[in-house]
C-alpha cells in the first residue's frame, strides 16, 4: 500500500487561488491511499473562495500511460479553458500526465496545454515494500515532499543520478548523465530536461526561486 497525503493547503492555495483550475483525482489502485475526504473538503473551500473549478475528473490508473493519453484527449476542451492543473495522485500519476500534455502540444502544435502549470496535490509517502505501480518509464521516490510543481512535472530525485534539487551538476555531456543508471542504461540529464520543460511553459523563474533541501525525516 502506498500512502499519499494532501500537500499543505497554503501551498496549494498560493498556486491556484483565483485561477481557472482543472482537477484530476486518481482513484486507481486499491493499494494507493488517497485522502479523498480531505481532497473533497479542500475543493469545497476552493469553490467558495472564488476559484473556478473548470472540471473535476475522477479517473483511475493515471499511471497507465496509453489509457491516460486517450482520456486526456477527451478533456481537451476543458483543459483549454483552464489555467492550472492540480493532480491528486501518487508521484507517478503527476509525471505521466505532465509528459502526455507536453507531447500532445508538441505533436499537434495547437499548444492548448503548453502553458499549463501542473501542481501535485499530494505528497507521496514512503511505505516499505511498495514501489508504486510503474508500467512506464516513471519513478516516484516516495519522498514525502513532492517537488514536481517546481520542476515542470519531471522528478529531480529519480531523473538525476545525484537526486540534485537545485540544478544540474555540470557532469552531463551531450545531454547524457555522467553515469549510467541501473543495468548500464545511459540516462538523459534530468536537469536539462527540467530546464527545457520550464522554458517551454515559460516558467524558468521558478528555478531561481528558493533553495531546496531534502527532508529525510519524511522518508
Amino acid at each position: 500500500m502506498l500512502i499519499t497525503q494532501l500537500k499543505p493547503k497554503e501551498d496549494l492555495l498560493s498556486f491556484i487561488s483565483g485561477e481557472k483550475v482543472f482537477i484530476l483525482q486518481c482513484y486507481g489502485c486499491a493499494e494507493v491511499f488517497l485522502p479523498k475526504e480531505e481532497i473533497n473538503l479542500f475543493l469545497e473551500e476552493l469553490n467558495n473562495s472564488g476559484t473556478l473549478i473548470v472540471k473535476n475528473i475522477i479517473s483511475d490508473y493515471l499511471c497507465n500511460y496509453e489509457y491516460t493519453k486517450l482520456r486526456i484527449n477527451l478533456w481537451a476542451e476543458e483543459l483549454k479553458k483552464s489555467e492550472k492543473i492540480v493532480i491528486f495522485s501518487c508521484g507517478i500519476g503527476v509525471q505521466v500526465v505532465s509528459t502526455i500534455l507536453n507531447q500532445v502540444s508538441s505533436i499537434s502544435h495547437q499548444s492548448p496545454v503548453t502553458s499549463h502549470q501542473i501542481y501535485p496535490g499530494c505528497d507521496t509517502l514512503y511505505l516499505n515494500g511498495f514501489q508504486g505501480l510503474t508500467p512506464f518509464n516513471f519513478d516516484c521516490a516516495q519522498c514525502g515532499q513532492c517537488f514536481l510543481n517546481y520542476t515542470g512535472g519531471i522528478c529531480p530525485l529519480t531523473s538525476c543520478a545525484k537526486s540534485l534539487l537545485n540544478g544540474p551538476c555540470g557532469g552531463a555531456k551531450n545531454g547524457k548523465c555522467e553515469v549510467a543508471g541501473p543495468a548500464g542504461i545511459v540516462m538523459d540529464c534530468g536537469w536539462e530536461k527540467i530546464y527545457k520543460k520550464l522554458e517551454t511553459i515559460g516558467r524558468l523563474d521558478i528555478l531561481k526561486e528558493v533553495i531546496k533541501l531534502r527532508d529525510y525525516s519524511k522518508r
Partner: peptide, 27 residues
C-alpha cells in the same frame, strides 16, 4: 562543489551521499 558521482571513481559500490548539493552547501 557537488562532486563527481562515485561510479566515476575507485569505489564504485560506495553510497552516493549528496544530502546537500553545491547550492545548499553554500547556503
Amino acid at each position: 562543489l557537488t562532486g563527481d558521482h562515485p561510479l566515476l571513481g575507485d569505489h564504485k559500490d560506495a553510497k552516493p551521499v549528496f544530502d546537500l548539493d553545491s547550492v545548499s552547501l553554500i547556503h
